[in-house]
Amino acid sequence: MAKDFSKGALHGVPIALGYLSVSFGFGIQAVRAGLSPLTATIISALNLTSAGQAAGVNIIAAGGTLIEMILVQLTINIRYSLMAISLSQKLDGKFSMPHRLAASYGITDEIFAVCSAQKEPLTPAYMYGMILAAFMGWVSGTALGAAAGELLPYSVSSAMGIVLYGMFLAIIIPPARKQFSVLITVAAAALISIFFRYILTAVSSGFAVIVSAITAAGLAAAVFPVKEEESE
C-alpha cells in the first residue's frame, strides 16, 4: 500500500515538474484575464487540466454563457472519457467504487500516459501517489505564476513550454520503435492532426485531437488486432 503510493508519487515527479512550468503560464494568463491569484489557484485545484482551464478562463473573462462553458469543456475534455475507459480495463481488484470516484479526478493526459505504460494492474494507492505529486506541481505552479509570473525571464519560461511534449515523445517513441503497429498508429494520428492544423482549421484543437486519435486507433485496431496478452 505505502510502497505503491510512493512508487506512484515517484513516477509522478516528472509530471509535477512539467506541470509546474505549464501551470505557471496558466497563472499568468488567469491574472491577465482579471482573476485573483486565489481564484486562479482554486480553478487549478478543482480542474487539474490545462487546455480546459485556459478556455474556461477566456469564457469567464469574455462574460460567456454557461452553455458555452459546458460545450467547450465537453469538447476539450471528452478525451478523458476515452482514457478513463482505457484505464478502467487495467485496474486492480482493490479499485472499489469509492476509489474509482476519487481517483477519476486525477485522470490527465500525463497521468493516463504513465499509468497505461505500467505492466501491472493499477492500484488506488499507486494512482493517489501520482495524482498527489501532479496536483502539487499543478497547483503550486499556478499560485506562483499568478503571484510572480512577470519576474521570470522570457527565455526561460518559453523554453519550459516544451517540457510536457518532450515527455509525450518519450512515452510513444520507444514502443513505436519496437512494434510496427504502434508506429503506424502514431504516424497516422500525427498526419491527421497536421491535416486539421493546416487544412481543416475550423475544427477546434480539442476536437481535432479526438478525431485524429479515434481514427488512427480505429484503423490500427482493424488492421492489427492485438492478441489477448498484449491488451491486458
Binding site: D109, S158, L169, P175, V182, T185, A189, I214, A217
Partner: peptide, 27 residues
C-alpha cells in the same frame, strides 16, 4: 477484440495527435 485493440492503441494515438504539430509552437 476490436474494442480491446482500439483501447490498446488509443494512448499512443492521443499523445501523438496532441504532440504533433503542437510541439513546434510550444516555445
Amino acid at each position: 477484440r476490436f474494442f480491446r485493440s482500439f483501447l490498446y492503441y488509443i494512448p499512443y494515438a492521443v499523445l501523438s495527435a496532441m504532440t504533433i504539430p503542437a510541439i513546434f509552437y510550444s516555445t
